[in-house]
Nucleic acid binder design. Sequence first.
DNA 1: AGTCCATGTCTACAGTGTAGACACGCCCGG
DNA 2: CCGGGCGTGTCTACACTGTAGACATGGACT
Lengths: 212, 212
Amino acid sequence: MTRDPKRTRPDAPTRTTLSRAYIAAVALALVDDIGRDRFSMRKLGAELGVDPMAVYRYFPDQEALFDGIAEALFTELDVDTLPWDGPWHDMAGQYHRRLRDTLLAHPHAVTIFATRPLRSPAAIDAGTRMIGQLTAAGIDAADALRILRCLREFTVGHALNLAVLQLGARRRSRKPRPDSAGYNALAYAADQAETGDHFDLGLTALLAALPH
Amino acid sequence: MTRDPKRTRPDAPTRTTLSRAYIAAVALALVDDIGRDRFSMRKLGAELGVDPMAVYRYFPDQEALFDGIAEALFTELDVDTLPWDGPWHDMAGQYHRRLRDTLLAHPHAVTIFATRPLRSPAAIDAGTRMIGQLTAAGIDAADALRILRCLREFTVGHALNLAVLQLGARRRSRKPRPDSAGYNALAYAADQAETGDHFDLGLTALLAALPH
DNA sequence: AGTCCATGTCTACAGTGTAGACACGCCCGG
DNA sequence: CCGGGCGTGTCTACACTGTAGACATGGACT
């Protein structure tokens, strides 16, 4: 089961005190390990080597901690290294591909990311920069936001769908054999289409049909 | 707060015994009222006028009950009345618009729907019918599945995003005034773009760029 | 030296999902 | 007619959850 027994867990920064970022990173690693539903503040405390209540000095409640996890995922995107100077199609394409890859690297955390708005300064800053790049290309600001929302919603929906399928397949393991009665056109198509290889199809379709 | 004090709750079918469908419908109504996080089996039992443990005669656990809620949402789509005989663009367009409308009518239940695969017979049947309509139009089965996945992922991602924004706005109520420092290009664009009116943009873009 | 405050700890409480034994009504073979 | 099974709802109990509130402690600053 644990393919990677020594799962990478962020090292404590010489263990002086806790910090929001460190707690969020450990919480993310714990969610990666055991999933959101098995996650608990007590287990997080144990993982931190600290009383569970200590976390509440840094986050008002579990919901805020999950906001922190979403933030940690966002910083993993490293948006500063995007092509902010080229055509916006390149920037947007790369950004959403990175978003997809990052989310799929944390399948257990995708629902956490997908179910809350990201309002951290870094995220807002990236959003404004994107809007700016589109308006610089002659696109109305409102249209720019619409376009970016479409791309983002497709990407997040895609990652969420894949994560759900992948995690659900683990416990069900129901794949009808080609000779069984349940093997219909849908199952046949699913056999042909590798799961997840349609992301580029949708992304390029969206980019192609939207204004340049 | 409760704009609609007498919230429509499905009538008991002359109250002989419970049933999976009835329990799922009441659970959905309860989630609509109080949200998924405040939902509990005990409250569901109270709403049903029955011991909480009675539900476990019909669903093995809460997760299975939520599967039932997702099923209830799917049946609300009434897929039989889709234009199964016309061009598949019409069928797919109408289907995903209905899906969006239904999900937005249950903002508190969107996360439940989005975070589990739908494997009910009705859903599988609808899926195979859709695949069939696309292959009848000369599209390879694997490509048909890819196309449908793109559309579905965009739609679900969209509904999830809107639900999250709408529900989050209720508790935060943070909308920067135009004269404040936090009013940047993103906030300006958000003021211009009505939330949610970009769905047609993305859907038609996807349909236009995909094979006919 | 004394005060304050940030940080971590402890206890406690209300509420959760659900396992397992129990009670009651209906149906059906004798 | 009966008696027993069985489907359905009930009750109790347990391990576990998030988190409020009081407490300890150690270093920093006056």
